[in-house]
Amino acid sequence: MNLVTVSGPPSVGKTSVILKTIESIKNRGLKVGVVKFDCLYTDDDILYEKAGIEVRKGLSGGLCPDHYFVSNIEEVVDWGIKHGFDLLISESAGLCNRCSPYINGINAVCVIDNLSGIGTPKKIGPMLKSADIVVITKGDIVSQAEREVFASRVHSVNPKAVILHVNGLTGQGSFELSTLLFSEDDHITSLKGKTLRFSMPSALCSYCLGETRIGESYQMGNVRKIDLGKEQ
């Protein structure tokens, strides 16, 4: 089975892109499954089911979604293998722009959209910078120049990635993406011994543990302070 991790900020069109891409993959006679990771709520699983794709969802609730992802991905892979998928796609939202659920040796796709502003590629951390493939969506509604500028900004932060434009509504570009997501050479039988490409954000302060009160005396563990400049 091949595993592909897809991530990107909320509402960029990850699910639409994956759905369109799976259509092309299915035409090649491959069996595809999806696992959707989210934080509080998602009904994207219904969209996958409607398209006849086997899907599971995981909600992290009060936990950091990517910590939740990495603690569960091994079981998810075992589930996928048991179901005889040729390709398993994990979809997760990079909620803090810092996380990346990418695993060394596993194809990693980051989805971002043209509307997010040209400063965005700089703002997104490893999720964009360490992806193998960057998919840019919503190119049909901005000018050619803005698409070119945006792609060049993406290129400047991740020169190694293949950058593709995909339209999640019409599916333009999704066939092309599908050709990059499955290879006979990329089969895995488990994730044992694999490592994350990038460490998750460090945490564990008192607020991670349920503290709600504000004030220095309640802050323990890993705490960092904002620099507001020196006052006279």
């Binding site: 502003g117 040209i118 049909d140 509604i141 901005v142 000018s143 050619q144 803005e146």
Partner: peptide, 8 residues
């Protein structure tokens, strides 16, 4: 295309 807009 007709649907394109400037967003910056």
């Amino acid at each position: 295309s007709q649907n394109m807009n400037f967003v910056m």
